[in-house]
Design a protein around this nucleic acid. Sequence first.
DNA 1: CTGAAAGCGCTAACAT
DNA 2: ATGTTAGCGCTTTCAG
Lengths: 347, 347
Amino acid sequence: MDNVPGGEEGGGIMAQVTIREVARTAGVSPATVSRVLNTSETVSPDLKERVLAAVRDLGYRPNSQARSLRTRATTVLGVIISDVTNPFFTAMVRGVEDVASAAGYSVVLANADEDLRKEQRYLEVAAAEQMAGVLLSPASATETSIDVLAERGIPVVTIDRRLKSADVDWVMVDNHRAAKEATLHLVEQGCRRIGFIAGRLGTTTGAGRLAGYRAGLRAAGLPSARELVVSGEFRIDGGREATERLLALPDRPDGLFVSNNLMTIGAVDALDTAGVRFPDDIALVGFDDMMPALSLRSQITAVSQPTYEIGRQATELLLRRVSGEPFPERHITLNAELKVRESSIRA
Amino acid sequence: MDNVPGGEEGGGIMAQVTIREVARTAGVSPATVSRVLNTSETVSPDLKERVLAAVRDLGYRPNSQARSLRTRATTVLGVIISDVTNPFFTAMVRGVEDVASAAGYSVVLANADEDLRKEQRYLEVAAAEQMAGVLLSPASATETSIDVLAERGIPVVTIDRRLKSADVDWVMVDNHRAAKEATLHLVEQGCRRIGFIAGRLGTTTGAGRLAGYRAGLRAAGLPSARELVVSGEFRIDGGREATERLLALPDRPDGLFVSNNLMTIGAVDALDTAGVRFPDDIALVGFDDMMPALSLRSQITAVSQPTYEIGRQATELLLRRVSGEPFPERHITLNAELKVRESSIRA
DNA sequence: CTGAAAGCGCTAACAT
DNA sequence: ATGTTAGCGCTTTCAG
């Protein structure tokens, strides 16, 4: 059993140990305790020792609310992501945490669930909690408003998606280019009627991928048929429903490009259910890798994003802002890579 | 463009609007503003009106640090989970959020990553931020310490796993029973050498499932061979490595039971790589469903947990504690269901 | 029904 | 080098 500080054993709700009590037991003033704990100002070794001992004995933990009320600064970064159940985002969090914790910051996540109201609520929480900085994958390029943060001078870096409603740093891949490349890959495989399952068009990601698909068709000299584009939420169900719609077409597509990983899962499900095989009946390409093994077994060709790296770089950028370093708006575009696998290869 | 409050347009870092400014513009005292905003005390309609108008015009947002420094209460729940990249946990978060937000609470997540130090750090963050309550899936049944929260009277409910180091409410499934059932299912399918891939044995979940597996063997009158049990981290790699070890055995197992979803992915990968087919060469059962489509395509028999329900009930319990309601320690055991699919069926 | 005043726990001037 | 004082923004007695 650990040595229980002060002998006050479990259960009881003890009052919080304050800096004054520490000061009293150490026989110094609160200011000295604070200096020992926070600053590099010189405190005599003797006092320092006594303070540290008191802190240990009493199990003192500074009240971070009081501290940041005073200093107007915290050591917590917020990450507001569009969907916690999407592996793409959680993988990114790894990169965020590694950089943040190396710099002494904690990371808390919030799930906006692609819902503008929830997103707004969490932006307000971040503001109210005076978080040091926020990483955000906005639910909408135009409707999301980061005013609450801007008003308080809390820096924001958007990840995966851009914001048209405000000028902020961002880190993402070139969705347009990647989608165009994927589309051309399908063309190369002989596809002539390529269906596209679009995600939330209100996001730059959703819109960019659609535009890339169209650019691909144009570059290949293929017509852009309206009925071949179906959009839905970035969810499994969205992908399934869209696929069903496309399969119901009198003239079925011979290729299918899906806007994100969750939608791809839905698409695969719908294809299976309908007995449509890939790549034989339809060549399939997705955006984003899934959980390792899913792509492994079903071998789905996909645009793979450097998720960890997005999180890492976004956080480094954010921390530079947090530290007050002034520099012009920074936009980082990372490379996405088309990983060609079985699902799109037609002999 | 939205009406910009006070005409102070974007960009500039405005100082925070305080309750005093609101009071001043409304021509009342700060106390009155506070009353209008927080209490049900009667304030004359006229003043109330003026206050609300001022709040709106100034875009006033209460500083939650100051408030909770004063009231010692927040409206934020913390969820400290063992691994954000595990769909099991993120699915649970859905249930948490639904209940919490219906009750007016926000939810922030932290990723302990099965690491005791990180976990401790986040417990401290939760304490320092005076969170109203915490849901925790402890990294260890014995080494995890929630003292920092207990000291401050912050209630904790553990999810998925129990804590032996403290008496707290918990919500989980009966791992022992579910694992025993799954093992017996494999026996029924004719398996006689059933390999078991164990997770972190330091967690009640990891240990409970192992015990259930052994109980199953015992009930079936099968010997419990030491070499058939391999343990690892609750990760994809852990599952892969453990499977490789089992496949290297001179007398290969004819059945395989894997302790969680991520490990199952690794196991499937290892089996594929080794060219071992299931259910033909080895009958496979996992714990936890994966992302819908993965199980769909690979049709893996698995113990399915009511993730949403675990999150929901745990949060309801937590909120009752938060409200100060006194009741004896509460333990909720939900039902897990063995979903028999192709991977374990031997004709 | 409303305002003045005190104080939550902490840190940063300012004294000494 | 250390202590005293003031005050971050808010809520809550206490007076009136």
